[in-house]
């Protein structure tokens, strides 16, 4: 049985919308894939190490952001009272960071951090901006303490690669 003209028109419009949506979706996916190095907000230390000589990224010459966890026990405040040294790690890789300025409230050892600056010739990261990055876990202090005490603490989720 043939479709009535009205139903045929509706079906055609549905087809046009679906095809247009598919083409648009593919186009956007391709653009985002091409721009993937621009869209990322920061690079992890191990990524910086493996792509140090990547001519597209030019990580040795330009400013970029490095993100990861502040290594436990690595934070050191220098005598001038304004400069902090710490290490950013993402498990396999780590960099020493030197930063002069105020740190955000959430900056602490074992927590996520994003530093912006450039590498010096000794392979140290000289940051002029440090932002704290928090994880997706929310709980009261008592719960966190109890988890740590019983050994069920999962650690910061970002420590996973």
């Amino acid at each position: 049985m043939a479709l009535s003209p009205a139903r045929a028109r509706k079906r055609r419009r549905l087809g046009v919308v679906i095809i247009a949506a598919a083409i648009l979706g593919i186009a956007v996916a391709l653009v985002l894939f091409a721009l993937r190095d621009t869209v990322v907000f920061f690079f992890g230390p191990s990524e910086v190490i493996s792509r140090l000589d990547d001519p597209k990224l030019r990580l040795q010459e330009r400013r970029f952001r490095m993100g990861g966890l502040v290594e436990e026990g690595s934070v050191r405040r220098l005598e001038d009272g304004k400069t902090t040294e710490f290490r950013i790690t993402d498990g396999p890789g780590a960099f020493s960071v030197r930063y002069t300025g105020l740190l955000p409230d959430l900056f602490r050892e074992g927590q996520g951090v994003v530093a912006e600056g450039r590498l010096d010739d000794k392979g140290r990261f000289i940051a002029d901006e440090v932002l704290a990055k928090h994880d997706e876990n929310y709980m009261p202090k008592e719960v966190a303490d109890a988890l740590k005490k019983t050994g069920h603490w999962q650690g910061e989720s970002e420590a996973k690669p």
């Binding site: 907000f41 993100g67 932002l131 990055k133 994880d135 997706e136 709980m139 009261p140």
Partner: peptide, 24 residues
């Protein structure tokens, strides 16, 4: 999930259940 962002990932609607205390 696709890119490194400063914003943290999802807490409630994610695989493996929410990572947020019931009281919150």
């Amino acid at each position: 999930d696709w890119w490194n962002t400063l914003h943290q990932p999802a807490s409630v609607i994610k695989m493996g259940g929410p990572s947020i205390a019931p009281s919150m």
